[in-house]
Design a protein around this nucleic acid. Sequence first.
DNA 1: CGCCATTCAGTTGTGTGCAATTGAATTGTG
DNA 2: CACAATTCAATTGCACACAACTGAATGGCG
Lengths: 162, 162
Amino acid sequence: MTTAPTPTPTADWLRLDQQICFSLNAASRAFGGVYRVVLKDLGLTYPQYLVMLVLWEHGDLPVKKLGEHLRLDSGTLSPLLKRLEAAGLVRRERSARDERSVEVRLTEEGTALRERALQVPRRIATATGFDVDEIRELRARLDQLTEALDAAAVEETPGRGA
Amino acid sequence: MTTAPTPTPTADWLRLDQQICFSLNAASRAFGGVYRVVLKDLGLTYPQYLVMLVLWEHGDLPVKKLGEHLRLDSGTLSPLLKRLEAAGLVRRERSARDERSVEVRLTEEGTALRERALQVPRRIATATGFDVDEIRELRARLDQLTEALDAAAVEETPGRGA
DNA sequence: CGCCATTCAGTTGTGTGCAATTGAATTGTG
DNA sequence: CACAATTCAATTGCACACAACTGAATGGCG
């Protein structure tokens, strides 16, 4: 139905757009709420947990690389890493080879925290009520969306297109 | 393949969990980036645009109702609404019937802005690269996810159940 | 070698998000 | 009517995000 005519009035577009950004926002914040509860035991916020995940998986990294993995810049990471350092989970050390760069290293305490974090994913997965295939499917869709949006953002920004 | 055994080692769960929260986060921020560019002409941020959408659709509302539509509390809305008021788009007036309540009303300027905002959804929809059905499908999945996460958050929080 | 563009982390300023608290207003109950 | 519980907006404190800028360090190029 609606194969050809009915040129989708502007008001409908607006509504649809509203729904998609609403839904994404709501889902993101709902995730944040669940993580907040689950991570309280570990003394981590959700973004801090993401940083620790990257470090646990890839080992010590300069701030720049960390930012590439997480799509975050130094404006966000610098204060966050300071808090992780204050909590004793990481150290920050100027690289000897390149004094501009700062290496983020896991402390023993930071490494040890991984054991306690291992139970987090199961609790989160349970909370979603989704099974493995559904999660994979959704993830693929979201990544596809992100890719398209990033490409569009570059094109929309006058002066940033390449 | 992998029909029955392979009981999914813990490390895999962790990886999967990482991906889903990464993806959702990334998509949300990518949306933010596109909206930032598109909304700059209107002088609105993305959350401010969401508030305006609700007001355009439902008319004047008390802060409380606004928060219910957007899942935001007064801690977020109060300063945001002050900025919208400073921009001349809304007025805030104590309700005569209930002095606790503050009515958020569109000014003429705020109402007029809707005309210029009508072109936003099309640009966003184009940027996603998704067609109407794909968006609807994704939205449904996300709402389902949000519902499950909210329910789980209530259960996980000791002392907030019921 | 000297200079300039680039790279990198950090800082500043603005704007959310959310928990917790405050204080005024209202409602329910006796 | 009086009093306790509740509702509501605002505020405070903390933690992201991100743009714009700063300053130190590096690398390329003549």
